[in-house]
């Protein structure tokens, strides 16, 4: 966010490559049955910046996360690569893990070895393993260049403008008001009520509308 964070950004002279940890998840048999996870972890150890690389049964599980957190501390890791399922699934989980390990959550990078590798190349374990190594390599290069981001917090007015005073606007206004929020309800006509006020009986109950 802030421009100062740019100083830790890539570019010209990266004298000190940050310390990176790589964690290759088996996801039980989901990844492990197709991709040779220990081999992927071993290969990652040779990449610039990687100081620790391990395969893990279930990275997202409580013990899995604990193991990663311990290693973050032990190795003083500055970037974390989790090679597991889709980031669309567990990115929030692992970001939180980084945070609780004292790292900025945006220093996480994920490689998608499940949805985009083991599950779609089930009968080609060698090619899948090779792809997994490539995906991890891509993630490690990217991780090296990540920088911390902070979520700016802005004050917010706890008040809602409801435009239109038909049954929908009225219901929204009442729900908000009953929850303690102030509401400004704006209606173009001289009365609220909308179309429903013009109806007598309504389906499906066949009772009165107002």
């Amino acid at each position: 966010m802030s421009l100062q964070s740019k100083t830790s950004s890539p570019g010209e002279d990266v004298e000190s490559i940050p310390k990176i940890g790589v964690f290759v998840c088996h996801c039980g048999a989901n990844i492990g049955k197709v991709v040779d996870c220990p081999k992927v972890a071993e290969a990652a150890l040779g990449l610039p910046g990687v100081v620790v690389s391990k395969d893990i049964g279930y990275a997202c599980s409580e013990p899995g996360q604990q193991e990663i957190k311990d290693l973050i501390e032990e190795y003083g890791l500055e970037r974390v690569v989790v090679a597991s399922c889709s980031p669309r699934l567990h990115e929030p989980t692992f970001r939180q893990m980084l945070q609780s390990a004292g790292l900025n959550p945006f220093l996480l990078e994920m490689a998608n070895l499940r949805e985009q590798c083991s599950w779609v190349h089930m009968s080609e374990p060698d090619a899948a393993t090779e792809k997994a190594m490539d995906l991890v390599k891509m993630s490690v290069s990217r991780a090296r260049l990540l920088w911390p981001l902070v979520e700016e917090v802005h004050p917010l007015t706890k008040r809602t403008l409801v435009i239109g005073g038909g049954v929908a606007g009225i219901q929204a206004a009442l729900d908000l008001a009953e929850n303690g929020y102030e509401v400004v309800l704006v209606e173009r006509k001289p009365s609220i009520g909308g179309t429903m006020a013009q109806l007598d009986k309504t389906f499906p109950t066949m009772d009165c509308s107002i």
Binding site: Y181, E182, V184, L185, V186, R188, P190, S191
Partner: peptide
């Protein structure tokens, strides 16, 4: 808690 403005846009 509801401020109502009718004839309003």
């Amino acid at each position: 808690k509801i401020k109502l403005h009718t004839l309003s846009e």
